[in-house]
Amino acid sequence: MNDSVVILSIASAITVAIPVLFAALGEIIANRCGVMNLGVEGMMLMGAVVGFWAGIETESLTIAMLAGGAAGASLALVHAALAVSLRVDQTVSGLSLVIVGGGLSSFIGTAGEPGVLSAPNGVDVNPLLPQSLRDLPGVGPTLLGQDIIVYIGVALVGASAYVLYRTSAGLAFRAVGEDPAAADAAGIPVVKVRYLGTMIGGFGAGLGGAYLALAIVGTWQNGLTAGAGWIAVALVILSGWRPWIALIGAIMYGVLNGLGFSLQLADIDIPSDFLRMVPFVAAYAVVVAISASPARARKVAAPAALAQPYARESR
């Protein structure tokens, strides 16, 4: 395997990691305030179709990404209404989001003139840094040759880790996910925090979907995410609800996802169908392995009130 193969593989692994990273970060934030949202796949699809559409209409990457995020957040609002206000089973509500997001996104995909489904990409996603930096050996094409969204993604990891663990707002936020009754007694508006957390989660998934459509796939097609949203959900468990670990996990996913491409360049022949299984087998194995390891070895615990609806008792 020569150097250019390694460099190309690393560069593509980072790009592919970003949609899953956005979605996993969002889900970590939602989980941290006690809301489990399994609808990541659906929210990513909504972000993808709306982001792609906004890209066609405005030709602006910023607007397209924000539109994708907003679409994800809107769908998350539905989950918040069902799971927080109506207190229905969060698993069922999250699954309904997957189906709704899949259905609504494919419906939106048929709209517009020309239809979103057949339209070419409206925005170019270009490297951020000047050519001189990108020409640096090694780090140039891999780390410095990425587009702005990649750097924003990494910055958001740091920002969310800081806010969650180093600020009083983050503490209040986590308190809602650990013990909503105590948080309520301390004057934290539990319902508002949970709505906010759920919608931030949806925004993250929407960003991920939009980036996937705009920068990686380059078109809109029904079911574009092909399981990436579920990988993000698995990644949250793998990360132990910690943003920096999620970043590492996302890049690992990127590497596994690009394995076929890398091996092909290196003239190693493995049937492509088996290569396509790799990320899913890995996610399966990791989830089982984490469950099987003793709690002390895991050093993590899910937020104590995860997926538990909160109803204030009568006073």
């Binding site: 997001g101 259905g103 494919s106």
Partner: peptide, 12 residues
């Protein structure tokens, strides 16, 4: 695609 939309709405 309206079929998927209706299925999703029903679930919701």
């Amino acid at each position: 695609e309206v079929v998927y939309l209706l299925q999703g709405l029903i679930f919701l």
